[in-house]
Design a protein around this nucleic acid. Structure first.
Lengths: 351, 351
DNA sequence: AATCATGTCCAAACCGCTTTGGATGGTTCA
DNA sequence: TGAACCATCCAAAGCGGTTTGGACATGATT
């Protein structure tokens, strides 16, 4: 059932039927109702492909996912972000198109999306230091919103980000207040913008208390369980080990916990741990009581906000770039406690 | 730059240019080369929207993700499956469109995708017992491939699945061979087809050895860390606790481990654990040595296979339904060992 | 009564491709 | 030499909508 057929059935022109369905004023109200009823009865739905060609709009938003060795992006965080953004698109009649491409072809993919008119805009994921995508997208004129920021980008652009620096600064201060002064950082990969900012938050907090940085207490790696485990194990082996850890994610926090447990130590008593919690739906940080003390910010909510912002930009391409900085809240869980007194620290009770 | 402009620049008709670019035979080879060169020079790329309307094909595949209370699907497994499928789509010039919709509107979404011509086919995720989507999609004539199977569906359909029954049967047998005869099962939600099959594998293996089922040792819940933790804790509190666990995923396995660690017990020595490992890229089961003994099957690979199957069906709609049953391999890790002798079991060494 | 505005509808152009059905000119073959 | 046959190209008709530019009553205005 298409427009022409429906119009024929109603004894009207396609023009009028189209206008009736799209709410244009130049159509008699009774006619409109008749059209609406007929459309519903024959469950007519306008063909997306035709609408797209006729209006010159794609009615779709793209998310490009580079895939390869550096698979940082196909991660749990991404799934939840997508879920949040997707809800917004659905509600506004937009499609979400995901392009899974090899790392090398990422820029080409954006060019294609633009020149073939597949999407009206894109979300840029996982920005890195001096991320080249921002200049590229600006140049080719494809509207975009960055999830995160790109330190070093010198042109204005729209973004939605968590205040990673502040979050890690607060977490560090919280540990310092508990008496910890050797705090291990199991950070994400530091060519990722968010990881750079988190590190800054950590170092700022230490500097403010006059505590010297110890490179042995700072690691940077993918946010996997194993990497958290390794980082913690290595630091616990130091002659002067940390009494607390800052982990970049729930998953790497679990690795840290494993290293702690493995030594017969107890998290929350012998060693404190704070993680960053993206509030993932299938990876809750406990239910009633949080397992980990955490800086929490819903990545799903960030997805919603970024999507709304992008749709706004698509509707009003000439407006100035927008941005939104979300604050993470500090959730107190069971994984932190006062620093053990020196002589007792790191000696398993059982030994 | 569009076809007409390019044709004008070349002094040719749009027809000829289109044919030249699409490899049709009725065009002179030197002309074709001239066209190709000009296309590259002006980096002309045909407009997707126009191609779609003209050819009547969407050149896109849909993935519908119901989102709501039952968020079983927005999970890490989904992200990896998507990555695998997405690669295949990209390679074949197809787009992947994700529809994130409320649970109640899922069926409606399929109807829309079909009648609006947004996609040429869909992948059905997370099939349940007697899943109604199979009949629906068959009825409306939208090509599809199911990731998993739907026990109870009485019409033929195409699917790609892991042999979940066999996997859990083998895992159970492995534990039995190690001397464990009280084995706890922390299963996924048992209205999900895969969970039903896994349970069957578990019960079959026990039955084959003449071991009576103990309902207290079988739980079914979402595959989160917390649910794994709770299931294990509850079972360990039993007067006659299990000496081994079967966990439905890496994440719930981590919860199980937490419950074990919490009691001062050691996984692999005091208690054995086997998980199902979907071989997720950012959640590796260890690197050199597997942490958990596991039944492993790459969900990403499943995504690739399902996508290829679907593209095949779209190309040849009249062929009979296809299917592919993947076998999981049993990976021996550090989480399993012989059952402790009765008198020693469950007594933490340190006490 | 002529003019004008208004409400309601339609024909036709258009979006940018693909594809059908020739047209044209040169070759080949009886 | 005329017919049949290629090889090569093009005009025009879709695909299924939207949108522009009227047409035609009807009622209000002067």
């Amino acid at each position: 059932m298409n427009l022409k057929e429906l119009a024929a059935k109603l004894g009207l022109s396609p023009t009028t039927v189209s206008r009736a369905l799209n709410g244009y004023p130049e159509v008699n109200e009774t006619t409109r109702e008749r059209v609406m009823a007929a459309a519903k009865r024959h469950n007519y739905r306008p063909n997306t492909r035709a609408i797209r060609l006729a209006t010159g709009r794609a009615l779709a938003v793209g998310h490009v996912i580079p895939i390869a060795t550096r698979h940082e992006i196909v991660n749990p965080v991404f799934a939840d972000f997508i879920a949040g953004a997707g809800e917004t698109y659905s509600r506004n009649g937009y499609d979400m198109v995901l392009s899974v491409v090899a790392d090398e072809t990422e820029e080409d993919t954006y060019r294609e999306l633009k020149s073939r008119g597949t999407v009206d805009g894109v979300i840029v994921h996982a920005p890195r230091l001096n991320d080249p995508r921002i200049a590229l997208l600006t140049e080719i004129g494809l509207p975009f919103v960055v999830h995160g920021r790109a330190t070093g980008a010198d042109i204005p652009y729209s973004w939605v980000d968590v205040n990673n620096r502040r979050a890690f600064q607060r977490a560090t201060e919280f540990l310092l207040d508990l008496g910890h002064n050797r705090i291990g950082l199991a950070n994400g990969l530091e060519f990722m913008d968010f990881a750079i900012r988190r590190r800054t938050g950590y170092t700022d907090a230490l500097a403010a208390r006059g505590i010297a940085l110890d490179p042995a207490l700072m690691t940077s790696d993918e946010m996997t369980e194993v990497s958290g485990y390794r980082a913690a194990r290595r630091m616990l082996d130091l002659p002067n080990p940390p009494t607390a850890f800052l982990a970049a994610s729930m998953i790497s926090g679990m690795g840290v916990r494993r290293a702690i447990d493995e030594r017969g130590l107890t998290m929350g008593r012998d060693l404190s741990v704070i993680i960053h919690d993206d509030d993932l739906s299938y990876m809750k940080n406990g239910e009633d009581v949080p397992i980990f003390t955490a800086t929490r910010s819903s990545v799903r909510e960030a997805g919603r906000i970024a999507a709304e912002m992008l749709l706004g930009i698509i509707a009003q391409p000439e407006t100035a770039p927008q941005s939104r900085l979300l604050e993470a809240e500090l959730i107190i869980g069971q994984s932190t406690g006062p620093a053990p007194r020196p002589e007792a620290s790191h000696v398993p009770v059982a030994l």
